[in-house]
Simulated assay, not measured.
Amino acid sequence: MIKFFRQIRYKLMGEQNTARYLKYAIGEIILVVIGILIALSINNWNEKLKENKKEAYFIDELQKEFINDSLTLQRLIFLSNIKAEEGKIVKEFLLGQPVSKDSIISMVFFNGRFLEFESFTPTYDEIIATGQQSIIKNDSLKTLIKAFKDQGSFYKRFLYDECMTIKQQYNLHAYKYFERSILPELWENATKENPVVDIDALGDYMIDVEGYKKDSKSLYYVTMNTGVDMDLNRFYKTVVMPDLELILKKIRDIKSKT
């Protein structure tokens, strides 16, 4: 093609027809410009295709990670509800209601655990760390995720810190009457079918159920601790879960349009 144009150019130059040569030169320039524009358009199309594939990959990964977050949160909602109900049983025991001492020991220890939810989304963290936020074109999705993450950081600084402090005080009080080393035994012997461990199976540990019951501070700490579990349960159900569902719905909407 280049050789063909060169031959035409030489022929026109030989004819010494300036007007015809200028027309040819202008035409050649136009053809070159059109060729460059076509090449740029193809290159832009290829880059756009690569970006779309990359965005689709990130969207898929984000969906998997937020689904895992949702499953984790569902477990925490379930467990925090159980802990709140068991806290009420321990409170009833302290107020004089007949409850198995085996149950009380298991509940006192297990209720001292803090069920903290922490979102785990390495893909989103990578996007932020590498400054690739623009790869996700949907601004609404980016806004939802950022708000969700910011909210998690806020509550971690305030709600979680307060809950952890109450849990620590509750546990320190319980350890006055129940040896801390009992906890590993409880984890080892408790099962899903039978979470209550027989006192006789715990070995030679300090276990003072009556002392715990008679201490007037026990009721205070149990009440506070039960309040923490109820608060966490409410927070996870009414605040965190709806926000997660909004993110997942937005992702499904985006994928349905691609």
Rank of each mutant, 00 (worst) to 15 (best):
Val108Glu: 04
Glu179Val: 07
Val90Ile: 15
Leu244Cys: 06
Leu31Asp: 01
Leu144Ser: 04
Thr143Trp: 00
Met107Ser: 12
Glu185Gln: 14
Thr165Asn: 05
Ala84Ser: 14
Gln132Val: 00
Arg180Pro: 00
Glu86Met: 13
Ala190Leu: 03
Tyr170Asn: 05
Asn17Ser: 11
Cys163Gln: 04
Val197Asp: 02
Ala25Thr: 13
Leu79Asn: 12
Phe109Val: 09
Asp215His: 04
Lys156Ser: 10
Asp102Glu: 06
Asn171Met: 14
Pro122Gln: 10
Asn43Tyr: 11
Tyr57Phe: 11
Gln74Gly: 13
Ala147Ile: 08
Ala129Gln: 09
Tyr220Arg: 09
Ile8Leu: 12
Ala201Ser: 15
Ala201Trp: 02
Lys137Glu: 07
Val108Gln: 05
Lys213Asp: 00
Ile254Ala: 05
Ile105Gly: 08
Asp231Tyr: 04
Asp150Leu: 10
Glu51Met: 10
Ile77Trp: 01
Asp200Arg: 10
Phe4Val: 13
Arg157Tyr: 00
Asp231Thr: 10
Arg157Lys: 13
Tyr175Thr: 14
Asp139Trp: 01
Arg234Lys: 10
Ser70Arg: 12
Asp125Ser: 11
Met224Ser: 06
Lys176Thr: 11
Glu61His: 07
Phe58Arg: 11
Glu162Met: 06
Thr223Met: 04
Asn111Phe: 03
Gly27Thr: 13
Leu40Phe: 13
Asn46Gly: 07
Val196Glu: 06
Lys149Ser: 06
Pro184Cys: 10
Leu202Trp: 08
Ser153Asp: 06
Leu159Met: 08
Lys176Pro: 02
Lys3Cys: 05
Glu15Gln: 15
Met107Val: 07
Gln169Arg: 03
Phe235Glu: 00
Asn46Phe: 09
Leu219Tyr: 05
Phe110Ser: 09
Gly27Arg: 05
Gly152Trp: 02
Ile59Lys: 02
Asp150Ser: 08
Gly14Lys: 15
Ile182Thr: 08
Glu116Pro: 00
Arg9His: 11
Ala39Gly: 15
Ser256Gln: 12
Lys167Ser: 09
Asn111Asp: 13
Ile42Trp: 05
Ile36Trp: 04
Thr191Cys: 10
Leu79Gly: 05
Ser181Pro: 06
Lys176Tyr: 01
Gln74Asn: 14
Pro242Lys: 07
Leu115His: 12
Leu115Met: 13
Arg9Lys: 15
Gly35Tyr: 03
Val209Ser: 06
Tyr212Glu: 03
Asn81Trp: 05
Leu159Cys: 02
Thr258Cys: 02
Gln133His: 05
Glu65His: 08
Pro184Asn: 09
Leu40Ser: 10
Gln168Lys: 15
Arg75Glu: 12
Phe58Tyr: 15
Phe5His: 12
Gln7His: 11
Gly227Arg: 05
Ile145Gly: 01
Gly96Ala: 11
Lys48Gly: 07
Phe114Cys: 06
